[in-house]
Amino acid sequence: MDISARRSELRKIRETLVREHFRSEADQEFDATLNTFDHPRYEIMPTGQVFDGPDEVMGYYTVTREAFPDQRHDNVRLRHTDDAVVAEFDLLGTHLGPLYGVPATGRAFRCPVVAFFFFDGDEGERIVCERVYFDTATIAIQLGIAPPLTEAGTGPA
Rank of each mutant, 00 (worst) to 15 (best):
Thr154Val: 14
Ala108Ile: 07
Gly97Arg: 02
Glu88Tyr: 08
Arg23Asn: 08
Asp31Phe: 05
Ala157Ile: 12
Phe134Ile: 03
Ala84Arg: 13
Ala32Tyr: 00
Phe118Glu: 11
Arg131Pro: 02
Val86Lys: 08
Phe119Gln: 03
Thr33Pro: 01
Pro147Gly: 14
Pro46Leu: 04
Asn75Ser: 12
Leu96Cys: 07
Val102Ala: 04
Asp90Thr: 15
Gly124Asp: 06
Phe30Ser: 05
His80Phe: 14
Val50Cys: 08
Leu96Thr: 10
Pro156Ile: 13
Tyr100Gly: 13
Thr47Leu: 11
Leu91His: 05
Leu143Trp: 03
Arg14Thr: 02
Ile139Arg: 02
Arg79Ser: 15
Leu92Glu: 04
Pro112Glu: 06
Ala84Val: 04
Gly124Lys: 11
Gln28Thr: 05
Arg14Ile: 03
His73Ala: 12
Pro112Gln: 06
Phe117Trp: 04
Tyr100Thr: 10
Gly93His: 03
Ser24Val: 00
Thr62Gln: 14
His21Trp: 09
Arg65Val: 04
Glu20Tyr: 01
Glu125His: 13
Pro46Ser: 07
Arg14Trp: 07
Val18Gln: 03
His21Lys: 02
Gln142Arg: 01
His80Asp: 14
Val113Gly: 01
Glu88Val: 10
Asp38Pro: 04
Pro112Gly: 03
Asp52His: 09
Thr62Asn: 08
Gln28Ile: 01
Gln71Thr: 11
Leu34Met: 04
Arg6Ala: 13
Val114Leu: 10
Pro46Trp: 05
Asp38Ser: 15
Thr154His: 10
Thr47Arg: 10
Ile44Glu: 04
Thr94Cys: 07
Phe116Lys: 07
Phe119Tyr: 15
Phe116Met: 13
Leu149Ser: 12
Tyr42Val: 08
Asn35Ser: 15
Thr105Glu: 02
Met1Pro: 01
Thr33Glu: 02
Gln71Pro: 00
Asp2Cys: 12
